[in-house]
């Protein structure tokens, strides 16, 4: 599933910062899971608490595509 990582469009943090930690977002590594498959990707997230930011173009684009792919497997 590491291929998904390379296919991800570059995600800009667009001025968002973590409300709790007050930190600007930086690339963090995170494991996404769907219907039992997990894969590791790099996304903008809080360097302290690790919460990642999912923008609409990712949720409705690549993520949806991968969800469909995994559902059809």
């Amino acid at each position: 599933m590491s291929t998904i990582n390379r296919e991800l469009p570059e995600i800009k943090a667009g001025g968002w910062r973590c409300r709790k930690c007050g930190r600007d977002l930086q690339p963090v590594t995170v494991d996404l899971t769907y219907v039992g498959s997990s894969f590791r990707v790099e996304l903008p997230g809080c360097p302290d608490c690790g919460l990642v930011f999912i923008p609409p173009e990712l949720a409705l684009g690549k993520m949806l595509e991968v969800e469909k792919l995994l559902e059809d497997k």
């Binding site: 990642v52 949720a59 409705l60 991968v66």
Partner: peptide, 13 residues
């Protein structure tokens, strides 16, 4: 301003 969803599980949400 916007709302969207995804089905993938993102840790920390």
């Amino acid at each position: 301003h916007d709302a969207y969803g995804h089905r993938m599980l993102v840790p920390g949400v």
